[in-house]
């Protein structure tokens, strides 16, 4: 049931991505055909994902004022879902797609700066959200 729901939300988001990104979404990444969402991530992976999130993402996506990613997502989803850590509907494939391809003002992140293993950990961490402030 949970997996079905996740997939549904992923499809919805993919669709959204397709509209925004101009229709190249379906091409996607064959290496990730099986969605890791089905398998719960280990605490070690989640910890690594959080570290990646802190290192790369927070400078644009933190809660509060002056974060361009948070501002942009606020326009799309409303202020309460604007910070990535507050999202409860992210799924790994969607995170991976956006990170590699970018969206709106966000450029994609290169393999040379963030490898697939780090990206998987990040995707697992964000998909396990929300992550309330001050809590691990």
């Amino acid at each position: 049931m949970k997996v079905a729901l996740l997939l549904k939300s992923m499809m919805k988001q993919r669709l959204l991505g397709a509209v925004l990104i101009g229709g190249i979404v379906g091409a996607g990444n064959t290496a990730y055909a099986a969605d890791a969402a089905a398998v719960p991530a280990s605490p070690a992976i989640l910890a690594q994902g959080e570290a990646v999130y802190q290192h790369y993402c927070t400078i644009c996506h933190e809660r509060g004022l002056g974060y361009p990613g948070t501002e942009a997502l606020g326009f799309l989803y409303g202020k309460d879902k604007a910070a990535l850590a507050d999202r409860d509907n992210l799924v790994p494939d969607f995170v991976r797609y956006i990170v590699r391809n970018g969206r709106g003002l966000m450029p994609g992140f290169r393999m040379g700066e963030l490898n697939n293993q780090e990206l998987d950990a990040l995707a697992a961490y964000l998909s396990a959200g929300p992550h309330p402030a001050g809590k691990k």
Binding site: R100, N101, P107, G108, M111
Partner: peptide, 11 residues
């Protein structure tokens, strides 16, 4: 498809 899009210019 997967590895090179981020090596292009988003703008």
């Amino acid at each position: 498809q997967w590895e090179l899009p981020a090596y292009n210019d988003a703008y």
